[in-house]
């Protein structure tokens, strides 16, 4: 069970290993706060839809499984959107159109197809929670690096010395691609080293 949980964090990290969910990963990570908000919203959706899909896995006819998964996912995404708008308006404004776009995050549909529709509820929770938190972790790391270099702050707190000039490119899309590329390269390097020993 722990194996199912931890594989999402490192070994099968949805962003670094499966290269899924690139759009939100690159688009919203201009700051650490955006990263954590997007990550947790996605985690909530993937875990809740995982539970429902897993519960009904024997009832859902395989011919209509994709539309059924999509409706379930879309329902949870809309719930998250309404809750953010009502109770966390600042986060909702910062994430803008990317909250409704969680619907098309392929990590979520991918988990239903690959795991929760074939496994019992408890295992599905471990799998989806691991995937969600692995995604969140990557988004926070990416968001923090971009915020430190691009705005001189982290989680909104100013930390860089006065002589530091923010690198504007880091908050632009190019900075997201460069940073993600370097993180993915380091991830592969560490894994290669680990394989050899």
């Amino acid at each position: 069970m722990l194996k199912e949980f931890f594989k999402g964090i490192w070994k099968e990290n949805p962003v670094l290993r499966q290269l899924l969910g690139m759009c939100p990963t690159l688009a919203v990570t201009t700051s650490s706060v955006n990263g954590i908000a997007m990550g947790l919203a996605t985690t909530f959706v993937v875990v809740s839809s995982g539970i429902i899909v897993s519960l009904f896995r024997n009832v859902i006819p395989s011919q209509v499984r994709i539309p059924v998964f999509t409706v379930i996912i879309a329902t949870f995404v809309t719930l998250v959107d309404l809750i953010l708008k009502a109770y966390f308006p600042d986060i909702s404004r910062a994430l803008g159109p990317y909250v409704p776009l969680i619907v098309v995050n392929c990590i979520i549909l991918g988990r239903q197809e690959a795991f929760t529709s074939k496994n019992p509820v408890l295992l599905s929770v471990c799998d989806t929670l691991g995937m969600g938190l692995g995604f969140t972790l990557l988004l926070v790391v990416l968001g923090s690096i971009r915020e430190i270099l691009g705005s001189g702050s982290v989680f909104g707190m100013h930390i860089m010395p006065a002589f530091f000039r923010p690198l504007v490119i880091m908050v632009l899309p190019a900075g997201a691609f460069i940073t993600l590329g370097l993180i993915a390269a380091m991830y592969n390097l560490v894994n290669q080293k680990a394989d050899r020993t």
Partner: peptide, 25 residues
């Protein structure tokens, strides 16, 4: 039946969520 059932449940849930958050939004 399954697809229609899921859609009905989803619509009901979202309707309820919409009504209960509309005021705050």
């Amino acid at each position: 039946a399954v697809l229609a059932g899921i859609c009905v449940i989803s619509a009901g849930l979202l309707g309820y969520a919409h009504i209960s958050t509309a005021e705050r939004i």
